[in-house]
Design a protein around this nucleic acid. Structure first.
Lengths: 138, 138
DNA sequence: TATTATATTAGAATTATTCTTAAACAATCA
DNA sequence: TGATTGTTTAAGAATAATTCTAATATAATA
């Protein structure tokens, strides 16, 4: 976290209370929240915090390469880990789960002559926990 | 196309003029259009055609397993090829290009104990054509 | 401290999609 | 064939996520 703050400062980015709050919240979260979800939580601590600020801050952090954005269903979710990795969206428990598999496109940044700057690989299905629960129930 | 129509009929799906128009348009298209784009084109031939019908038909075709849906940017795009394959979105020419690479998750339908029913792998970057153009220009 | 630039807020606007309801159409049965 | 029933469509309202706008607040600089 401190390293990120240092990097952002060096880029000349003003670190306001709101921005630090979003950054901190995302880094302590493993649930890949939406802007809306982040706003709902932060509003308890900072009642004046606006949803637009959350969107702006997330944009800024994405531009700065400190977080990544995932488009899942109709909404954008945010991941504090900026390195490309895959995700599974479980249609039973609705969780978004990190999937760490080796991916040649992520590594090389190229595929069939095209240049790849960002990878969004989302698997839709049922997570191992829910599979077990379903099998156990039957 | 005829084989698909036969399959849909056997599932008891009524094939109206509107539904056939959407199916046919998508099959003759390689541009991965949105519902909006399909509607705009079809309205020229069928001025009464409603956007809601296009959405309904695309939903129906997806449920029937005859097409696939891609979430790219903020919009849903449709692909007449129902088999899982990857895509590249070129941020220069805005095209969505099919990327055929071997993918163990697509093949097996499993990853790290999770069950995978649908794969959405989108690479964001610059396509080979635009890369060449850029290099040529410099 | 005064000035300037940047960030934030609140709410309006936009965009893509879904929902609703009445009318149109298709399939089934008498 | 004609009546009945169920499904599909059209039009527009409703919704949800996101972006834009303009005024205010805050931070950085001189």
């Amino acid at each position: 976290m401190d390293a990120i703050i240092e990097k952002l400062k060096q880029k000349g980015i003003v670190l306001t209370i709101q921005r630090l709050a979003v950054l901190e919240f995302l880094h302590n979260s493993s649930s890949h929240p939406t802007a809306e979800a982040i706003h709902t939580k932060l509003k308890k601590k900072y009642p004046m915090m606006s949803l637009a600020t959350v969107y702006n801050t997330l944009d800024m952090l994405k531009q700065a390469g400190e977080i990544q954005e995932l488009t899942i269903g109709n909404a954008k979710h945010f991941d504090p880990i900026p390195q490309s990795h895959h995700h599974l969206y479980c249609r039973v428990c609705k969780r978004i789960i990190d999937v760490e598999i080796s991916c040649p496109v992520c590594k090389s940044g190229r595929v069939q002559g095209h240049k790849v700057e960002e990878v969004q690989a989302v698997f839709y299905g049922i997570c191992s926990d829910c599979l077990q629960r379903e099998n156990g129930a039957q």
